[in-house]
Design a protein around this nucleic acid. Structure first.
Length: 491
DNA sequence: TGGTATT
């Protein structure tokens, strides 16, 4: 929602805009700056739901809102008129946004004025057309779950029945291979919507893992968000937070951070989004240090914000051959085989220790899994809109392979293990840059194998040494280097 | 033996 302070009608800011409640449609009109019922001050200007925001260009810089108002008023009641000004200097930029209360007024003004007359002092005719924010974005579709062999023409054929396609692009990697998705741009929103209605989920392409996805493409803001999340993953800023706060905390932190960034960007702050992101990240890290989290043990009762799922590091009394992440050392290796007790009593608990009957790691795993990887997990890709969705989903971790020799394949995982548990289990050996447990799409059940990637081969080797053959319950882990992609398969 | 990808 937009709260505009700039206004004009009588030069008085509309103070009611600050208290307007957007959930109540009857108050929406307070957001605008023009009151067009001078004879009846209590009239609340409303605009059509399908009103069009117009961009007005080629305006002399000596004309402000009240000068422009009469010119445009003859086509209908004005809902909002804002001259664009430079953020820093306040200088008139020679253009404006104009919204009529009625869509029809905008269309009339456009046809009557656009390029039809030239305002005094200008050498080009006035521009009156829908603002970029209006038509763009709501007619472009993102199409996913395509077969990677499908060409632009194939996609066109699939979509042409629903409207005029202005653009059709398959997304390709640097090597030219299709990423299995595309953008399709129609001439109108209605056409795009028709295509969604008809095609989304309608069929499954050969070789695709799920049915066709057809949806509106990300907006600029959404794209920025996506980039920032990816960057967070690449900068390794997700993992430390996950360790310290658990999934809940990491989620909350990222949301908070994004909210701050969006606020800054949306308000016309001067930071670009990436700079804002970096700044917010710095604050977070500073906050972490202030709290002494890396050094001081947390106790489950140390505060209302202590997230579930992570147990405080124990006293690091065990000699540490690999002190990489500063949390703890390796488990002792009597017989060359660590025991579950050794590892899990060493502060690497992926699960809560408060369970009274949690002598068995598997029981603990079950409890931990229930806490933060419940049925809502796949919703992680969804919206963030509701106040507080149930147990906050894990942030989808970017699945990154490490360099050659740094990636492990792990088999015979406990059924209850998810990405987080897998990561916790391998953290003692180095910086885990990703962890992934494979899940059956249909049942959402773990397939009991997964991947862990470190940032260096020594950590991977240490993990193999310590964890291959590691007994959990009735099973022993198989831990080995992941097969390279081009490896010949046995049989 | 890395599953759903956003110019």
């Amino acid at each position: 929602m937009y709260i505009k302070m700039a206004t004009l009608a009588n030069g008085q800011p509309d103070n009611t805009s600050l208290s307007s409640n957007h959930s109540n449609p009857s108050t929406n009109g307070h957001m605008n700056g023009l009151n067009h019922s001078p004879g009846n001050p209590s009239t609340i200007p409303m605009k059509d739901h399908d009103a069009i925001k117009l961009f007005i260009g080629q305006i002399p810089r000596n004309l402000d809102e009240k000068d422009l108002k009469p010119l445009f008023e003859e086509f209908g009641k004005i809902y909002e008129l804002t001259v664009l000004k430079d953020r820093f200097t306040g200088m008139h930029k020679g253009c404006a946004f104009l919204t009529y209360c009625e869509r029809e007024s905008a269309l009339k003004a456009q046809s009557a004025l656009h390029e039809q007359k030239t305002l005094p002092g200008m050498n080009r005719p006035i521009q009156v057309k829908p603002a970029d924010s209006e038509s763009r974005g709501d007619r472009k579709l993102f199409v996913g779950m395509l077969n990677k062999q499908q060409s632009e023409d194939d996609v066109r054929r699939l979509f042409e029945a629903f409207g005029n396609i202005e653009e059709c692009t398959i997304l390709r990697g640097p090597d030219g291979n299709s990423k299995g998705c595309a953008f399709v741009k129609y001439s109108s929103h209605a056409e795009a919507q028709a295509a969604i209605n008809a095609l989304h989920g309608s069929q499954t392409m050969p070789g695709a893992s799920s049915s066709l996805v057809v949806k509106f493409a990300d907006t600029d803001k959404e794209r920025t968000m996506r980039r920032m999340q990816q960057m967070a993953g690449q900068m390794g800023m997700f993992n430390p937070m996950a360790i310290q706060f658990g999934a809940y905390g990491a989620y909350a932190q990222l949301m908070q951070q994004q909210a701050a960034i969006m606020a800054s960007v949306a308000q016309g702050g001067y930071l670009n989004p990436m700079a804002a992101f970096a700044a917010a990240q710095m604050q977070q890290m500073a906050a972490l240090n202030m709290n002494g989290l890396a050094a001081a043990p947390m106790t489950p009762t140390s505060g209302g914000s202590t997230p579930p799922g992570i147990t405080a590091p124990a006293v690091p009394s065990i000699p540490s051959p690999i002190g990489v992440n500063g949390f703890t050392g390796l488990p002792p290796q009597a017989n060359g085989q660590p025991t579950a007790e050794a590892v899990f009593a060493n502060g690497i608990h992926p699960y809560p220790a408060q369970s009274p009957t949690a002598a068995d790691p598997l029981q603990q795993a079950y409890a931990g899994v229930q806490q933060y990887a419940g049925p809502a997990y796949p919703a992680a890709y969804g919206q963030i809109s509701q106040a507080f969705p149930q147990p906050p989903p894990m942030i989808p971790q970017q699945q990154r392979e490490g360099p050659e020799g740094c990636n492990l394949f792990i088999y015979h995982l406990p059924q209850e293990f998810g990405d987080a548990e897998l990561m916790q289990m391998f953290l003692p050996f180095g910086n885990v840059i990703s962890s992934k447990v494979f899940v059956d799409r249909a049942t959402n059940q773990s397939k009991c194998f997964g991947f862990v990637s470190f940032d260096n081969p020594a950590s991977a080797q240490a993990a193999i040494q310590a964890m291959n053959g590691f007994q959990i319950g009735m099973k022993r882990l198989k831990v080995q280097l992941k097969r390279p992609k081009d490896a010949n398969r046995p049989y």
